[in-house]
Design a binder for these strands. Structure first.
Lengths: 105, 105
DNA sequence: GCGATATGCAACCATGGCATTGCACATCGA
DNA sequence: TCGATGTGCAATGCCATGGTTGCATATCGC
């Protein structure tokens, strides 16, 4: 996973409604209609959010008869967390180095 | 750090320009003007991005005479990564449990 | 003091994103 | 078959966001 593919993932995670959807899916796969039934937004709104989440690989569609259930992919989330942690660690190393240089002056 | 404060952080990280700024700041503290000098956007645009980054605690202002340098806070990034990893792990546990139930049928 | 540089604030514009409604199409069940 | 349910697509409205320009203000160096 490169930084380029990482940014859209964060953009996807930067929305409350999508977190609600992810949380709901965490309790079991569900269709857009099923999600809309217990959330204060339209089915179409949910469908768009699901499209976004699918685009960045956070969710996966599973066709079951006439309905399309969505499954949350926790691995993608862990992967993202790992990359983020690497970046944070890298910056902390740099900052520590700078600080040491400053103290040795 | 709660989930409520977490979402804005992701929203902040969901922008290419802001990543450019963070990357630039990773090589040393810099002011909005200094950043604007080596980036294809206006100083004011940079200033707005810095305000957003500061709002979510990813960056910290340091007044130096008449200029305001910004320092990137890697710890906040690591903190975010940790929370994200926890959430991902939680979902993977749930999914594993569901899978096991399904297999035992 | 004065010019140069850095910042701050406000107005403005364009684009994109979130959400809506409306309608057409597919599929399940009685 | 026919009604009910689930999905897909398109048009639209609205507001937030990213970006710009312009101007006022503060501070440094000479």
């Amino acid at each position: 996973m490169t930084t380029a593919t990482l940014v859209p993932v964060f953009a996807a995670l930067g929305d409350e409604t999508r977190w609600s959807i992810l949380a709901a899916l965490g309790e079991g796969d569900a269709s857009a209609s099923a999600l809309a039934a217990r959330m204060p937004v339209t089915r179409q709104a949910i469908a768009k959010h699901l499209a976004v989440l699918q685009e960045v690989g956070l969710v996966e569609p599973v066709r079951v008869g006439r309905e399309v259930r969505f499954r949350v992919l926790g691995s993608q989330l862990s992967e993202t967390a790992r990359r983020l942690d690497e970046i944070g660690a890298e910056w902390e190393r740099r900052l520590a180095a700078i600080k040491q240089i400053a103290e040795s002056l």
